[in-house]
Write a protein that binds this DNA or RNA. Structure first.
Lengths: 198, 198
DNA sequence: TTTATTCGCTAACATTCGTTAGTATATTAC
DNA sequence: GTAATATACTAACGAATGTTAGCGAATAAA
């Protein structure tokens, strides 16, 4: 019937993407149907295909959009001339920030990537593995110069990343503390577990 | 055609349950079909219904089986006469043990519970909320007697539980350290983040 | 104003889904 | 041996899925 946005506004697809992120997060990728998505966009299901190629394409774009942001941050942090422990806290803060301010996409990227189709799936898994390796390398560097407790670095990375993923629960919580306080608490607990007893 | 187990062996359903856990974990509840499950049991899809009521019933039983084990452990820990910090480490070790030795069910309980049908869904969410409250209460008690750093207890619980959920990645890892070392590392990092600077 | 393009719609498609009905066979109980 | 029960099978159902085809109206370009 009526077009919702003017023609020259190319952000129609971006609206679909953001609605898709919310829907995939709420229902899960498999349980979210194109008809649901269409409804939340305010359009019939078939009309979506004037803007997108397929349901999976939506997942591709969401996942790699998020992944690229994290990779870019990792580049910056690696290049920075600051102590290792600060690099880690910087990364933790970035993760938390992303989780809070781009909740839906980050969550989808975190929990629904396994439904990616295969050229993309392997690519994504490689990027993920690489990211964790680079994170672990920073921790190992910190261990060598005694600014970090001697622990198994891959295990530490695993703990950090999943702990941050838990903000999901905070996000849904009714009586939530404010974002800054949350960040500070997480850095205290997670960072505190890394620093050697002084 | 041929029955796979003898009649008086009542564990046919348990086989289905354990195959379901593995399948739900691998594919996700929605993406796992009864025909896939049947294949992995070695039977036609319709035959499953001689043993189970529905697909959702499988999820119920998996989720509440796990949830009940954790609730029972919490009862024990609360009743024990040991310092708060030891209670917490005890719980952490229990979580890790469960995650390692009952991986598939625990994972499914953790990540797929949202597909429970509604009398069960609310029930499950309540139990979950209650469990976290009781966990947080132990932390708060520890804070009051100065054996734990003054932090936001609900946030700490959230971090702990999700960090442990990350063992999922360890489980899939090719070059994994052994389970005891993993446990020790996690207790060091997570416990270390809680103890006050001395 | 005419022409081309964008973007909505309805209708329909082939698959896949969970599940039921009805039947046959093998085991157990008597 | 006979009756009863447990459990496997084949066939089929209605519903929901992602997606395509084709059409009409609105916008942009000429």
């Amino acid at each position: 019937m009526a077009r919702i946005q003017t023609h020259n506004n190319s952000s129609r697809k971006e609206l679909i993407l953001s609605k898709a992120a919310a829907l995939f997060r709420e229902k899960g990728f498999k349980a979210a149907s194109m008809r649901h998505l269409a409804e939340s966009v305010g359009v019939e299901a078939a009309s979506l295909y004037n803007h997108i190629k397929s349901k999976t394409e939506l997942l591709h774009e969401l996942c790699f959009g998020v992944a690229n942001r994290f990779m870019q941050k990792m580049d910056e942090v690696e290049a920075a001339k600051i102590p290792d422990i600060e690099k880690i806290e910087d990364l933790i803060r970035f993760h938390i920030y992303q989780m809070i301010h781009h909740y839906e996409e980050v969550y989808v990227c975190d929990r629904e990537w396994k439904y990616l189709a295969d050229p993309y799936l392997s690519n994504f898994q490689n990027q993920r593995r690489m990211y964790r390796k680079r994170f672990a390398a920073i921790i190992e560097s910190g261990i060598r110069n005694n600014s970090i407790k001697p622990i198994d670095a891959p295990t530490a990375v695993l703990i950090l990343l999943h702990a941050i993923g838990g903000i999901e629960s905070w996000h849904r919580s009714t009586q939530k503390i404010d974002a800054d306080a949350l960040t500070q608490n997480m850095v205290t607990i997670l960072g505190g577990g890394l620093k050697p007893a002084s």
